[in-house]
Amino acid sequence: MNEMNIVSEYDIAIVGCGPAGLSAAINAVIRKKKIGVFGTEFCSPKLHHAPHVDNYLGFQHITGEDLRLKFLNHAKDMGITINKNKVTGVFPDKKGFTLQSRDKFYLAKSVILATGVSTLKPIEQEIEYLGRGVSYCATCDGPLYKGKKVIVLAYNREGLEEANFLAELASEVILVSLVKEKDSQGIRLSDNISRVNGKPQAIIGEMWASGVALENEKIYADGIFIIRESVLPDQLVPGLEVSQKGILVERSGATNIPGIFAAGDCIGAPYQLSKATGEGQVAALSAVKYLDEFNYSNKEEAEKVSASV
């Protein structure tokens, strides 16, 4: 991977800016680690919509929005900023892990997943065709479809932006938009984008995905791009072990991949604030311990190499 593509390097990269992610960030900063926090345009919408929170210790009779702002202000006061670039993949690297966000890449020695629970489930055959005609990243895979016909299933504003990007490469873009009208304001679609109304039901094809089944019709193309707010954890991190309840972790927050930890709603119920913030702290402390051991191991390796020269 070209070093010129690397935007930043971190000790700990935290994917998610809800209660678990911000708790992890605050505790990692206290332990003097260089962190990067990746989040959406609006951190923790679920908390924002809670009319009352009565079970968070020390903050009785508080609204979800007020508590959300307290979390964000705490992070801001500690110098923590939120990177709004959506992470679409986390891959092993000789220095730890590479996080991809469109055409940007970030390096991290360890990663904490705090992605919450996605309310949007994969459509039928989506996972089976991932990498075989189905993609979650237009910037990553768009060049493969230069001069070809593609379908974009847009679940958010980013999906409309990705459709415009693909319109510069593809011969034709078919857009199925599930974006609310207020969220699409200000975006002008390219002339070679045609819109089709309907709710996606399934990916269709044989060895390779060839189209999408909507409620009342089927549409066909050479490639299909599905753009949602978040990517399912096991698709975000290849090889990550998950169950129907969430990401599988040890008590320390460690996943099956050394150096990757998880916290909050993404590891399963109960979906409670106190649990999320506590797990965020545990994951951060575990990542710090991992880094300390990692650095010590690297130092030992360097000393062995020096001694043998």
Rank of each mutant, 00 (worst) to 15 (best):
Asp93Ser: 15
Lys95Val: 03
Phe97Gly: 09
Gln100Glu: 12
Ser101Phe: 05
Ser101Asn: 00
Asp103Glu: 03
Phe105Gln: 14
Tyr106Asp: 12
Tyr106Trp: 12
Val111Glu: 15
Ile112Thr: 14
Ile112Lys: 14
Leu113Gln: 07
Leu113Ile: 15
Ala114Phe: 05
Thr115Arg: 02
Gly116Ser: 15
Ser118Met: 00
Leu120Glu: 13
Ile123Cys: 08
Ile123Arg: 03
Glu124Ser: 05
Glu126Asp: 00
Leu130Tyr: 11
Gly131Trp: 07
Gly133Asn: 06
Val134Pro: 05
Ser135Trp: 04
Ser135Glu: 05
Ser135Ala: 05
Tyr136Ser: 05
Tyr136Gln: 01
Cys137Ser: 09
Thr139Cys: 13
Cys140Gly: 00
Asp141His: 01
Pro143Phe: 12
Pro143Tyr: 13
Tyr145Pro: 03
Tyr145Trp: 05
Gly147Arg: 11
Gly147Trp: 15
Lys148Asn: 13
Lys148Trp: 02
Lys148Tyr: 08
Val150Phe: 06
Val150Ser: 06
Ile151Asp: 03
Leu153Pro: 08
Leu153Gln: 10
Tyr155Asp: 06
Arg157Glu: 02
Gly159Lys: 09
Leu160Glu: 08
Leu160Val: 01
Glu162Ile: 04
Asn164Gly: 05
Asn164His: 06
Leu166Arg: 08
Glu168Thr: 12
Glu168Ala: 14
Ser171Cys: 04
Val173Gly: 04
Ile174Pro: 04
Leu175Trp: 02
Val176Ala: 07
Glu181Asn: 10
Asp183Ser: 01
Ile187Met: 02
Ile187Tyr: 12
Ile187Asn: 01
Ile187Thr: 07
Ser190Phe: 07
Asp191His: 13
Ile193Leu: 10
Ile193Arg: 10
Ser194Cys: 12
Arg195Phe: 10
Arg195Gly: 06
Arg195Lys: 14
Val196Thr: 13
Ala202Asp: 09
Ile203Asp: 07
Ile204Phe: 11
Ile204Met: 09
Ile204Leu: 13
Glu206Thr: 15
Met207Ser: 14
Met207Gln: 12
Ala209Val: 15
Ala209Pro: 05
Gly211Asn: 08
Val212Glu: 00
Val212Trp: 07
Ala213Asn: 10
Leu214Val: 02
Asn216Pro: 04
Asn216Met: 03
Glu217Leu: 15
Ala221Cys: 14
Asp222Thr: 04
Gly223Cys: 00
Gly223His: 13
Ser230Val: 12
Asp234Trp: 10
